[in-house]
Amino acid sequence: MKNLLQLGAMGLLVAVLALCVVWASKDANKYRKLVWVTLFITFDLIMFGAFTRLTDSGLGCPDWPGCYGHSNPLLAHAHISAAQEAMPTGPVTVAKAWIEMTHRYFAMGVGVLIIGLMVITWRKWFSARNAGVSLKSSVGSQFSRWLPTALFFMVCLQGAFGAWTVTMKLQPIIVTTHLLLGLTLLAMLGWLGASQNHHEPVAPAGRRLILPAGIALLLLVIQIALGGWVSTNYAALACNDFPLCHGALIPQMDFENGFTLWRHLGKTADGDFIPFSALTAIHWTHRTFAFIVIAFVAWLAHKALRVEGLRTTGRLLLIAIGVQLVTGLATIYLNWPLAIAVMHNGGAAFILLMLVMLNYKARLSSRFSAVKP
């Protein structure tokens, strides 16, 4: 119980630091500021989660939620040192323990902030209902109590998968799901943040982008899932040439073992070592599908540039797609450097946010067209 209270105190400290930023802000709408600060920390958490995974620190503390039953690596130093001495390059080292626990502290901080968002919205809703006041403020801006509540349940589910990531020893399907849930959390915060902002009017032509924007978001989610499968199976270097793979357009691949979802890390479903051809199939699929996603999102961004009210989002999407292509190729040609690999993960999260914003704004076009100047 003492260790749990200490862990909770660390998460509360992260949240308090964020709340200090909100309190010191000159923004009169402190709730909106809290939403965007929470989104910013969640984005950073996803980036740091990628760093944790790419440095092979996911088992830096092989238990959960603490580290060898303690609230921080300092108290568990004897256990960590013994594990590191037994296996110097193994999953447990002092550095990896600190990376893993820092990730957990920030995750708990995000959880506290989301609980704060939920409590604030429900209190305001009850106060407004008793006063007979509507919380809808203007076109494109509303005060919803359901989305923060959904965020609370989502962060609880994300925490459960974070625990299973450790207790199930980095099983690929669990780690990939953990990644997807984290990005879903980010997308939901992005939608909540967009609902709190005042947006410039979107031309009626934006209505024509509602369906393409939804399709682009779906394609990106599939691509992120494929990228997560590459990362969790350590298949990033399965093809080290481009545009060919092992000198062939379609190399020898084992899709059956590569895309068997329920299996242990580095193993087939039968418990044998996973063949290299399976890793090749994982990498090649992610690489090939990337061109479909890039082409469609680039086309969508080009269309958005022609619509008043969507031009900034379209411009940012084009830039992000270009950077993502460069970082993806750099991971191949430069032999998977850590900094660029983390940037590639962050780029996917940023594109996701931009597509969420584009979907939100495209849906505003019909509402704005109904409002007289």
Rank of each mutant, 00 (worst) to 15 (best):
L4C: 03
Q6F: 12
L7N: 15
M10R: 04
M10L: 13
A15V: 04
A24E: 00
R32D: 08
L34E: 02
V37G: 01
F43V: 14
F43P: 01
I46C: 12
G49I: 06
T55N: 10
S57Y: 06
G69T: 10
G69K: 07
H70Y: 14
S71D: 12
L75Y: 06
I80F: 05
S81F: 06
A82C: 06
A83K: 13
Q84Y: 03
V94K: 09
A95R: 10
A97R: 09
A97L: 06
A97Y: 01
V110N: 11
L113C: 09
V119F: 10
I120S: 11
W122A: 10
W122K: 11
R123M: 13
A128V: 06
A131P: 04
G132T: 11
S137Q: 14
S137F: 02
W146R: 13
L147K: 08
P148C: 08
L151C: 11
F152I: 02
M154L: 15
C156Q: 05
L157S: 12
G159R: 05
A160T: 12
G162C: 07
W164K: 12
T165F: 01
T165R: 07
T167F: 01
L170E: 08
I173L: 12
V175G: 09
T177G: 10
H178A: 08
G182P: 08
W191K: 10
G193Y: 02
A194W: 04
S195H: 03
P201G: 09
P201T: 07
V202Q: 03
V202E: 00
A203I: 07
R207H: 02
L217Q: 12
I224V: 15
G227R: 02
G228V: 05
S231I: 07
T232Y: 00
N233E: 10
A235H: 02
L237I: 01
C239E: 01
C239P: 03
D241I: 05
F242G: 01
L249A: 15
L249Q: 08
I250Y: 10
Q252M: 08
M253D: 02
D254L: 05
F255V: 05
F255G: 07
N257Q: 14
N257A: 13
N257S: 14
N257I: 04
L261H: 02
R263K: 15
G266R: 08
G266V: 07
T268G: 11
G271R: 09
D272R: 14
A278H: 04
I282G: 03
T288K: 07
F291H: 13
I292T: 15
V293S: 06
V293Y: 03
V297A: 08
V297K: 04
W299G: 04
L300W: 06
A304V: 09
R306H: 10
V307N: 02
L310M: 07
R311T: 13
G314R: 05
L316H: 14
I319K: 00
I321H: 01
I321D: 04
V323K: 00
V326C: 09
Y333S: 13
L334V: 06
W336S: 07
P337S: 05
A339S: 13
L355V: 09
Y360C: 05
K361H: 03
S365T: 07
S366M: 12
S366N: 08
R367C: 00
F368K: 02
A370Q: 13
V371C: 05
V371K: 15
K372S: 14
